[in-house]
Computed example of a mutant assay.
Amino acid sequence: MHEMSIALAVVGQVEEAARAQGHDAVASVTLRVGELAGVVPNALTFCFELACEGTALAGAALATEHVPGRAHCPPCDHAWPTGTPPSLTCPRCGLAAAGLVSGRELEIARVSWSGATVPEEG
């Protein structure tokens, strides 16, 4: 289950940021998770709770922001929701998408502690 690896990495990064900024405890973490990132939200929440035990994040809440998948076709400048499984053929002109515009995100968006919310820097 790669959700445990993700949870451990998030806890490690947030705990390091908390120490660097002089915080003892983390109240919540918000992650941006793309629909094409291959993450099962319920499994991630379960793993996050386990990974937080005995750390500065013990008892911290996990929130996720869903990021829909979107693709772009440069020749006709059309963007569309990819859905799952992703449709990477332009519905307007039939050409293949040049790439995804969004949907593969997996990033720490916000961390809250001591009553303050600080955006996490990438």
Score class of each variant (00 low, 15 high):
121 E>H: 12
62 L>G: 03
105 E>W: 03
122 G>K: 10
8 L>S: 08
15 E>V: 15
2 H>C: 08
19 R>K: 12
65 E>C: 11
12 G>R: 13
120 E>W: 14
14 V>S: 11
83 G>S: 11
108 I>T: 11
20 A>C: 02
71 A>F: 06
6 I>S: 04
44 L>M: 09
120 E>Y: 14
49 E>R: 14
9 A>W: 00
11 V>D: 03
75 P>H: 13
86 P>H: 07
114 S>I: 00
23 H>L: 13
86 P>Y: 01
60 A>F: 08
89 T>S: 13
112 S>R: 14
122 G>P: 12
26 V>P: 02
78 H>G: 06
32 R>E: 11
27 A>F: 02
90 C>Y: 01
6 I>L: 12
3 E>Y: 12
7 A>K: 01
43 A>W: 00
33 V>F: 10
70 R>P: 01
100 L>H: 12
76 C>W: 01
45 T>D: 12
70 R>L: 09
58 A>W: 01
14 V>L: 10
86 P>F: 06
28 S>V: 09
121 E>F: 09
25 A>V: 08
62 L>S: 08
119 P>M: 07
104 R>H: 13
118 V>N: 07
20 A>H: 00
44 L>K: 05
81 P>K: 07
33 V>N: 04
55 T>R: 11
17 A>M: 14
21 Q>H: 15
44 L>I: 05
73 C>S: 08
104 R>L: 09
122 G>W: 05
3 E>H: 13
27 A>T: 07
33 V>H: 06
